[in-house]
């Protein structure tokens, strides 16, 4: 009860919890599309590729304004994502190799810029650490406003393009035959995912960002076969585990926020995989063996009018 009281009254805890909830919500919703399209790990690449953007933005403008840094992060993050798609599309280098390569090469460039800044411009090691592991405790109200504004725009775009994104996720060829600009939509979806990642970096950091996109979605996926419900559930799970992680990490000494959020998410995924009706592992052990559930998109009911 003390914790709940603090959640409302304590400035730091309230800010962190709000930030984590926003991040979980945006990451969970947009992550759904990444996971459905078999692009789960794009978040990992984009998050790592944000580092040179942040360092570059600081190098060019000398500004520590979060919006400037986020813009830099989004630019290089998006560039990496597009390079991954181009490489995988036009050459025989496999998608996952392109991902791993861009991830580490962009991160390496970021590291060069960061260390250069540290040694020449007197920037501190703290900046790099905050970026790597997130620094949720340093969130201030202004950061939360920025997160809410950017995340809100991304979510509204997602809702406006609901049918198109659904088509992109389940049957891009059909969408193409309808004359929809699927390439453009794909680019747009990637941009929205980049936004979700960029607003999360400060809270959970580079390394753990991919989990924020994937975990709520994978948990939600076990409970429903409908896209609409899955996205809503993923947003809810993301927000709830975000708040839970923030509260738990505040309640104990030396418990960093980002990893705690990820561990909460991991617990919900494990629970969902075990307990979810029909798909859950325990459920399957007990009942008569039915057809194994599928991790692909085929078991989705896509024609439901309720979803569109």
């Amino acid at each position: 009860m003390d914790l709940l009281y603090e959640l409302v009254t304590d400035y730091t805890l309230r800010t962190v919890a709000l930030g984590a909830a926003l991040l979980g919500m945006v990451g969970g919703s947009l992550g759904s599309y990444a996971v459905l399209r078999g692009r789960s790990l794009i978040g990992d690449a984009v998050a790592h590729a944000a580092l040179p953007g942040i360092a570059g933005a600081f190098l060019l403008t000398g500004s520590m304004n979060p919006l400037v840094l986020m813009l830099g992060a989004a630019t290089t993050g998006l560039a990496a994502a597009l390079l991954v798609e181009t490489t995988a599309h036009t050459t025989r280098v496999p998608y996952d190799s392109a991902l791993a390569l861009m991830l580490s090469a962009f991160f390496g460039l970021g590291l060069v810029l960061m260390t250069y800044l540290q040694r020449h411009a007197g920037a501190s090691q703290a900046g790099l650490d905050a970026f790597l592991f997130g620094q949720a405790a340093a969130l201030v109200t202004r950061d939360v406003y920025v997160m809410a504004a950017l995340g809100g725009i991304a979510l509204v775009m997602m809702l406006l393009l609901w049918k198109e994104l659904k088509l992109l996720s389940f049957n891009p060829d059909f969408g193409h035959s309808l004359g929809l600009p699927m390439q453009l939509l794909n680019g747009l979806l990637t941009t929205l995912i980049v936004v979700a990642i960029v607003i999360g970096l400060q809270t959970v950091g580079v390394v753990l960002m991919s989990a924020v996109l994937i975990a709520p979605t994978v948990a939600a996926r076990q409970w429903t076969n409908r896209l609409g419900r899955m996205v809503a559930l993923a947003a809810g799970i993301g927000a709830a585990t975000g708040v839970a992680g923030a509260v738990v990490s505040a309640s104990m000494r030396n418990l960093p926020t980002g990893p705690t959020i990820v561990l909460c998410m991991g617990a919900v995924v494990a629970m969902s995989m075990l307990l979810a009706p029909e798909r859950g592992l325990l459920w399957r052990m007990g009942g008569p063996r039915t057809a194994a559930p599928s991790s692909s998109n085929s078991s989705f009911s896509t024609s439901s009018p309720a979803d569109s």
Binding site: L41, A211, A215, V218, G266
Partner: peptide, 18 residues
Amino acid sequence: GLVREDAAIGLVFPVLFS
């Protein structure tokens, strides 16, 4: 069969790292 490979990778390493 509940989770695809790339999602499984993206779940396991952040949890272990955390």
